[in-house]
């Protein structure tokens, strides 16, 4: 059963992984991190990606159009992933669903040449589930 560190180390085994972190999108705190931090500053990277994640999850425009926004329990985040690409890397943010109050996402930073975005997205979603469900 993986804890935070084990989950992040698993994410780092994906092809092209440069860095991975678990970040609280309300406080902007990184609860755990491995590998390199984008921009070289973990705290700044966490705070900035958290702000982006917060705007996405609070956006009515980006939420599902159906009536079940928030899922049956009301605890599913309205947005599942954020994907940002640039000329040399991918940033993949995956919201973690918990029954208790947690407001966190996984952030995986991938090298563009070596990374496989589609595979990483599937794996990161599985890791987010296993992190809280075991």
């Amino acid at each position: 059963m993986p804890g935070i560190d084990e989950s992040l180390l698993q994410a780092m085994r994906l092809p092209g992984a440069r860095g991975a972190a678990v970040v609280d999108w309300i406080s902007g705190l990184a609860l755990g991190a491995v590998g390199d931090a984008p921009g070289g500053d973990l705290e700044a990277a966490a705070a900035e990606t958290a702000e982006l994640a917060r705007l996405a999850t609070e956006s009515g425009v980006l939420a599902p159009a159906g009536d079940d926004a928030g899922g049956a329990s009301g605890k599913e985040p309205p947005v599942q992933d954020l994907i940002i690409t640039n000329s040399d890397s991918y940033h993949l943010l995956r919201f973690v669903t918990t029954t208790f109050d947690s407001t966190v996402f996984l952030h995986l930073w991938l090298d563009r040449g070596e990374g496989n975005l589609a595979l990483a997205r599937i794996r990161l979603a599985e890791m987010a589930d296993r992190l809280v469900l075991g």
Binding site: I4, L31, V96, V104, R130, G134
Partner: peptide, 10 residues
């Protein structure tokens, strides 16, 4: 789960 405990604890 371990991860759930850690997230809630932190």
């Amino acid at each position: 789960a371990v991860g759930a405990l850690e997230l809630c604890h932190l």
